[in-house]
């Protein structure tokens, strides 16, 4: 299963004085099993792009293909796209509305017209996946939960539709460090279980840790596309775009500026550790000579 965006351009309010082009001529193929990080400034078009992946927005020009089929052509059942591609918005807890957690999670499957028994099964499965196994929680009002738990419920609501591709817009925004880490581990776990993940993120440390591919957006177009290694090799370029780079990347740049032979592709903590230990041991050996 893959989604392909072909020459996708999206213009808001075309023909009005407020016309603005959010993304322009974007070509992107999301491949099965990827963990794709979508990076960029606010206003770089990444959220608009994310909304094209499940057909919420239709391109002004260009095509969006799901397994080779144009999802906006006449006669194509949109529900099919919604079922296969799940989209989790920023602060998804703001969309909760039902009396109980279980009912809220059931909203998606119900819309798919599934039989009661299957809905119940899916709700339980989705709540298990997000780590809310507790039977009590399912019967609680979602508005009684903590912020982190509410967000999990909202994600469960999307997972209950059993999407093959999961698109998440800044799933960790506004969470404290511990809840953030738990959320990222949850998403990483879903990816390990076989889901294709597209995650809009501002945190380069997260991208470095989890993504198998990173796409950098700037002014509505794709500026960079590659593995995190490839992207972070151009740390200077990212900084020029006003984006953060992982702190260990910055450390590498500083060290090289100081004339130390620090290798280039360091972007995870464990890589930095190895490299620094090697540097130190080498230094010691020299000193001993």
């Amino acid at each position: 299963m893959q989604v392909t965006l072909e020459h996708v351009t999206h213009t808001y309010q075309p023909g009005s004085p407020f016309q603005s082009t959010a993304i322009e001529d974007v070509n992107l193929t999301i491949r099965e099993g990827e963990f794709l990080a979508l990076i960029g400034h606010t206003g770089s078009g990444k959220s608009t792009l994310a909304q094209h992946i499940n057909g919420l927005l239709a391109p002004t020009s260009g095509r969006v293909l799901l397994d080779g089929q144009d999802i906006h052509q006449k006669g194509y059942d949109k529900r099919e796209v919604r079922r296969k591609v799940g989209l989790v918005f920023q602060y998804p807890e703001h969309q909760l509305f039902e009396e109980t957690v279980a009912k809220d999670v059931a909203f998606g499957p119900k819309n798919l017209g599934l039989p009661e028994a299957e809905i119940a099964e899916r709700v339980q499965e989705a709540l298990n996946k997000v780590g809310l196994k507790d039977k009590d929680i399912a019967e609680k009002s979602p508005f009684e939960l903590s912020g982190g738990q509410m967000r999990r419920v909202a994600i469960a609501g999307v997972l209950a539709m059993r999407p093959r591709i999961l698109v998440l817009d800044e799933p960790a925004a506004g969470l404290d460090p511990q809840s953030r880490e738990e959320m990222l581990q949850l998403i990483y776990g879903l990816h390990q279980q076989g889901a294709t993940v597209v995650m809009v993120s501002h945190s380069m440390d997260d991208v470095a840790r989890f993504a198998t591919r990173a796409v950098v957006m700037e002014h509505g177009t794709i500026a960079m596309d590659g593995t995190p290694e490839e992207i972070f090799r151009h740390a200077e370029r990212l900084e020029q775009m006003g984006l953060d780079v992982p702190s260990v990347c910055k450390l590498g740049i500083r060290l090289r500026e100081m004339g130390l032979p620090c290798p280039e592709d360091i972007f995870r903590e464990e890589q930095a550790m190895e490299a620094l230990l090697a540097l130190w041991k080498e230094g010691k050996a020299h000193g001993a000579e």
């Binding site: 919604r82 799940g86 989209l87 918005f89 819309n111 798919l112 539709m161």
Partner: peptide, 10 residues
């Protein structure tokens, strides 16, 4: 935004 989020849930 909410409308879109619920549309995404079918």
């Amino acid at each position: 935004k909410i409308m879109k989020a619920q549309t995404a849930r079918g």
